[in-house]
Design a protein around this nucleic acid. Structure first.
Length: 647
RNA sequence: GCUGCCGUAGCUCAGUGGUAGAGCACCCCCUUGGUAAGGGGGAGGUCGUCAGUUCAAUCCUGACCGGCAGCACCA
């Protein structure tokens, strides 16, 4: 007998091989009807699976949050059947559930377009209405391969071969159609319901390998209920309004143009924001003992050969080819590290100098693949808040931890509380011995564990010279972008001939930490704009307030207000145009100006201002001095405010 | 880089095998109006670039450039 524990704590015994459906039916026919799947010890399973072991059992209805992935996975199968019905000869590959939906990859000479969606969705609704049960069969490898080979499903044959020997080959049928699948599924296609939608098509490489076939991917989403689907679609619409490329234009921060793809034209306001952030980092790192330097933009290619960058990244580096035979080949720097190593090497260093922290706002250029460019988030010319920390091996853990703390405290100042940390270990393409990598990874891991923050493993994604921690921010529509990073490098200092003299007068190769906090100023600004949906806090706003007049009678007073505000170092402009106040309010609100100081006859007479904050429809009238005091205090950067408080 | 889609005024977009339109923005005039668009007038485009087809191309075809989505890449 197997003993099953129910959610209410009841414990009952059943003969082995009893299915979940039998048990549900035994409890009540209506429960059996409502149930779409079960969970055994928390693991989702087919309701018709025979139960072989003692377990906690739960019956899932369609509305259970855990059933959502089943709805989506089943929808992917329904999608695949619909496509193969409409376009026989199309090969199926895989169709997993992802965040917010599912996709299915097909192989077909003619890729799908959104124009096909109407027909596909219609066919899907037919299949769902047919409500055929999902049934599972376990096949032998040879049988599965033969069946798929005979059907012309070459990709499925490859998948069968890829399934580990100790795992079963499971086939799920839904009427006549079937698919190789690890499951589980709900009880029938009808359970998918009609709250689904195909979203977009895209190309995707078979098995994520750019040397393999390009498949045609159809993305879709599905929910238990229509109103949830509607809410999701609405949310996407809202998220798109936060797109930094759109806001960047509306706020007049920057633009891009054809002649310089992937490079930013910063406008006055955008550049003010850029400098505000640069100054913030400058203060933070000076306080943490970094010295700022500046290294050449163009360096002879020999240095990049020595560093190993040429071998790994030549095709994405900008090279300046010699015009004459005897001239050098220069490289537009794609990284700051070799430059910083030269500064370290210039002059003999003692162990007493360590840790030595060299920082630079280094503008680097990388010829990124055209398809990867994305607004400010992925550019070809960007500014790293880069630093290299030269240390002894024994200082690794302590210094990594300091960097980690510094980065997290910086992100908190911008309201990024849920930063993802990823640990990326050795990649296939790398320099240095495995023993050295063992050491570097262990040191990084030790620091990570000491910090106690949650993290995930990014297998094989480290830099070619060392493992790294990545600090990842998420954009408005859920895409992840690496921003901060700290990397342990036991390779490059040795390759570039850096050493220090230890207490026994021996030459020793230092360990180098690479670290960036924003990562790229450009990318960080992009994330920042989306994070705040353009509503930047006062200290970051490039234009903090606009003084707007109601009639020209107030012009003189408005000029007085502007001058007084500028004396408190607020970034203020005046709007004395012959326009109605409604018009001015609308315009500056759309431009996301955080504070409007409205002045008319009344304010001029009383020496006050009427304050309207972005996002609020209310105003508050205050004496001018008090208003400017409050605003200039609010405009103090958070780190400066902390220092003042501590003093 | 790959697959698909897209490229008309500063922005958002309409349109046609016979060399182009709207709204907003811009300039001028009227209006001095209390918190998200007052009214009138004007200027502005070699329809992404280069070839080809055609009597004729912004429109059809091709290549290239750029953008968007996804994939691949990301020191």
């Amino acid at each position: 007998m197997v003993a099953l524990t129910f959610p209410d704590g009841a414990r009952r015994e059943y003969p082995p091989h009893t299915t979940g459906f039998d048990i549900a039916k035994g409890i009540s026919p209506s429960l059996a009807k409502r149930t779409v799947a079960m969970a055994l010890d928390g693991m989702l399973a087919d309701l018709n699976d025979p139960i072989e072991r003692d377990a906690k059992i739960e019956f899932l209805t369609r509305d259970d949050p855990r059933a959502l992935e089943l709805i989506r996975h089943d929808a992917a199968h329904v999608l695949a059947e619909a496509v193969q019905t409409l376009w026989p000869g199309t090969q199926v590959t895989i169709g997993p559930v992802i965040d917010n939906g599912f996709y299915y990859d097909f192989f077909r000479n003619e890729p799908f377009t959104t124009e096909d969606f109407g027909a596909i969705e219609k066919k899907m609704r037919e299949i769902i209405a047919r409500d055929r049960p999902f049934t599972k069969e376990v096949w032998s490898r040879d049988q599965a391969k033969k069946v798929f080979r005979d059907k012309g499903e070459a990709f499925k044959v490859e998948l069968v071969d890829a399934i580990p020997e100790d795992q079963q080959i499971k086939i799920y049928k839904q009427g006549d159609w079937f698919d190789l699948c690890r499951g589980p599924h709900m009880t029938s296609t009808g359970k998918v319901g009609n709250a689904f939608k195909l979203m977009k098509t895209a190309g995707a490489y078979w098995r994520g390998d750019s040397s393999r076939e390009m498949l045609s991917r159809i993305y879709g989403t599905a929910f238990a209920k229509q109103d949830e689907l509607d809410a999701y679609l609405k949310q996407i619409e809202e998220a798109e309004k936060r797109d930094h490329r759109k806001l960047g234009r509306e706020m007049d921060l920057f633009h891009f143009q054809e002649e310089a793809p992937g490079s930013v034209f910063w406008h006055p306001k955008g550049w003010t924001l850029f400098q505000t952030l640069e100054n913030y980092i400058r203060r933070r790192q000076q306080a943490a003992g970094y010295a700022e330097v500046n290294a050449p933009q163009l360096i002879d290619s020999s240095l990049w050969v020595a560093s190993g960058h040429m071998a790994t990244f030549r095709d994405v580096m900008f090279l300046i080819e010699p015009k004459e035979e005897d001239e050098r080949t220069y490289v537009v720097k794609p990284m700051n590290c070799p430059g910083h190593v030269q500064i370290f090497k210039n002059g003999l260093k003692s162990y007493r100098d360590l840790p030595l922290k060299i920082a630079e706002f280094g503008k680097v250029h990388r010829n990124e693949p055209s398809g990867s460019l994305h607004g400010l988030l992925r550019v070809r010319a960007f500014t790293q808040d880069d630093a290299h920390i030269f240390i002894t091996e024994r200082q690794i853990a302590e210094e990594v931890l300091k960097v980690n703390d510094l980065i997290l405290s910086i992100y908190a100042d911008f309201g990024f509380d849920d930063v993802h940390i990823k640990f990326s270990d050795r990649p296939d393409k790398r320099i240095g011995d495995d023993a050295v990598w063992d050491k570097a990874e262990a040191a990084l891991m030790a620091a990570l564990q000491t910090s106690g923050r949650p993290w995930t493993l990014n297998k094989g994604e480290g830099a070619f010279y060392g493992p790294k921690l990545e600090y990842v921010l998420r954009d408005a529509i859920g895409r992840d972008w690496q921003c901060g990073t700290v990397q342990v490098d036991l390779n490059m200092p040795g390759r570039l001939g850096a050493f220090y003299i230890d207490e026994h007068s021996n030459k020793v190769t230092p360990v180098m930490l690479h670290r960036a906090m924003f990562g790229s100023l450009e990318r960080f600004i992009g994330n920042l704009i989306e994070h705040y949906a353009g509503h930047l806090p006062l200290w970051l706003s490039p234009l903090q307030a606009v003084v707007a007049t109601i009639t020209s009678d107030a012009d003189d007073y408005a000029r007085e207000v502007i001058a007084a505000a500028r004396r408190t170092e607020l970034r203020v402009e005046g709007d004395l145009r012959n326009e109605k106040i409604n018009y001015k309010v609308r315009e500056h609100s759309l431009a996301k100006v955080p504070v409007l100081l409205v002045v008319g006859k009344k304010e001029a007479a009383e020496h006050t201002v009427s304050i309207r904050r972005l996002g609020s429809e209310r105003q508050q009238t205050m004496p001018l001095d008090a208003a400017l005091d409050a605003l200039s205090q609010e405009a103090v950067p958070p780190d400066v405010a902390r220092m003042k408080k501590a003093a």
